[in-house]
Amino acid sequence: MRCDLASNAAFALSRNRVHEAEGQGRRSFALLQAALHADALIWIIPGHAPHQPMLRGLPEGVGERLHLIRPANETDLLWATEEALRSKGVGLVIAEPERPLSLIAGRRLQLAAEAGRTTGLMLIREGQGSNAAETRWHCAPIASERRDSTLHHWKLIKNKKGTLTTWTVHWNGKTTAVHPVSAAGERHQPAETSR
């Protein structure tokens, strides 16, 4: 498959804004965004959360730029997010708040991102976003018929400056190349022969 640069532009988050992603595939989506950004990456995970990114599974070039922050409580998490967004040295800030984001918190994060010229991505639980978000994505991995294909269903469910769209893409989690799957694509696949 060819690398389609135009298709990456569709998923690139607009700079200097804070975005939200929900759904089971939100962390894959965040890692794609991390691979698309050039500067230092900050991932803020609550201190008591059991999960953490696994270095060997991350996309190329992300591991050495990634910094983990493990704040002890929700207030510290929001404070750390705002500080990181306000810093000039950071490219992308990924945060996983546990409670619903209030409008005030969302707006403060937007102002911080504008001041620091950084991009923010909040990984929220479903329905816990704030209205101040620039875009909100619903991300889910989907099963594919073929063995070498890792399909993702990325749905733009809120967009302040554009239309809502749905993509089904193939992204293998290693590079920045994303290949959209056309809706009719499945029909053109050769049928699996019986063995």
């Binding site: 270095l55 510290d76 040295g89």
Partner: peptide, 27 residues
Amino acid sequence: TREDALADLFSRLGNRLGFDRVLRLLP
């Protein structure tokens, strides 16, 4: 300037959260 800004950010975060909560992954 970017490196300086990042070091300043880690100092600020470390002084409030504790330096053991500002982490990095090493192989």
